[in-house]
Design a protein around this nucleic acid. Structure first.
Lengths: 202, 202
DNA sequence: AGTCGATTGGACCGTACGGTCCAGGAAGCT
DNA sequence: AGCTTCCTGGACCGTACGGTCCAATCGACT
């Protein structure tokens, strides 16, 4: 919410610069591992600017980063994400996900890692991140629901459970991607998830 | 390594008490969210004891916790983990995993969450945790390899890829378990993974 | 009993980090 | 131009936290 309200163009630009640079730092070193001074140095700004654009300090900044990363990752999955109505779309989606995460400067999922880290230290922010993840899941579930309605999935298939399975495979694949420094786990996880999905075809 | 060497029985006991209590705290609040004072208070010990039993301080303690949690979680999967040679064993394993994580006081995987958090702040410790995860994976891969040899999996099945897929489903399911405060994601993820596994049967 | 190391308590220290404050520009508006 | 609001720099502060130190006590062994 909010976004560019109450800032001039210049201000909004500076704010955006901070969020983007901070997002990269947090992706690389985690929320707890990134200090405001790191961000200040990495963006060529000053402490007061950070608190000018994010009055609640690190909390606000973290929330902004979560939104930013969510938009970025959802965008990378388009146009497939909105039209997961066919098996071809799912294949395209899988490829888009692999391409996006394969091209990132760092491994792992910005959203999943933040959620996992924050849940123990800042439940409120963690809930926000969880909401973003739920939104993401919503696209998958919507596609599966439409596919079932169209007869591409058996009537007894459970879109909710299948959604969770695919999303879990995605998140788990990304976690392993991080620890193993390789894209293979993600590929294997997604392939298996799609195989499981197809097992629910009539 | 090391373990009870150079400590008396009483000392080893205290050390174990510290590790166990600290493991719970770290599981609940993350590594960065748990201070040495928290641990001191939570175990009724003193600062000097922490450094007596873990000379390198938090780093040593974290490493000990990782080992402890790994043993605990591997133990919970036995005896299935050692004999993943049949489909029945895999079903049993799935149930054991669900039962173990369902009975924990907190959601999420102690190992996966630590790996994800540490990778950005303490690469050395993260590598240790990753090694534990690799050991865990080894059991899955060994089972799948034996199954292929026994003809329960097609000759063109890739045990390595299937291992990654199952383990990713497990870790991803646990991550969602954490953010959604429910065991369902884990159940759905494991069911889908086993479905994908069965798709590689002759 | 006496000795020596293992064990424990807890005061203390240095610093890194989140956050505050204020003063000095830019930039928009009339 | 003059006023007001936004923007920026950077010194400063309080404290939380990892880590150190030393003295007191316990306990195993001779």
């Amino acid at each position: 919410m909010s976004s560019t309200a109450k800032f001039t163009v210049k201000g909004a630009l500076t704010r955006a610069r901070i969020v983007e640079a901070a997002a990269d730092l947090v992706l690389a070193r985690g929320v707890g591992g990134t200090t405001l001074d790191d961000i200040r140095a990495g963006t060529g700004t000053s402490k007061s600017q950070l608190f000018h654009y994010f009055p609640a300090g690190k909390r606000d900044l973290v929330a902004a980063i979560a939104s930013f990363q969510t938009e970025r990752v959802l965008q990378a999955q388009r146009p497939f994400l909105d039209t997961l109505d066919t098996w071809e779309a799912w294949e395209g989606w899988r490829d888009a996900v692999l391409a996006h995460y394969g091209s990132q400067p760092h491994w792992g999922c910005p959203i999943g890692a933040m959620a996992s880290e924050l849940i123990g230290s800042d439940p409120e922010r963690a809930a926000e991140v969880a909401a973003h993840m739920a939104r993401w899941c919503g696209y998958l579930r919507a596609g599966l629901t439409r596919m079932r309605a169209a007869g591409l999935l058996r009537a007894d298939a459970d879109p909710e459970a299948l959604t969770l399975a695919v999303f879990a495979a995605l998140q788990g694949g990304l976690l392993l991607t991080q620890t193993m420094q390789s894209i293979e786990p993600l590929r294997a996880a997604l392939d298996a998830a799609l195989t499981a999905l197809r097992a629910s075809a009539p």
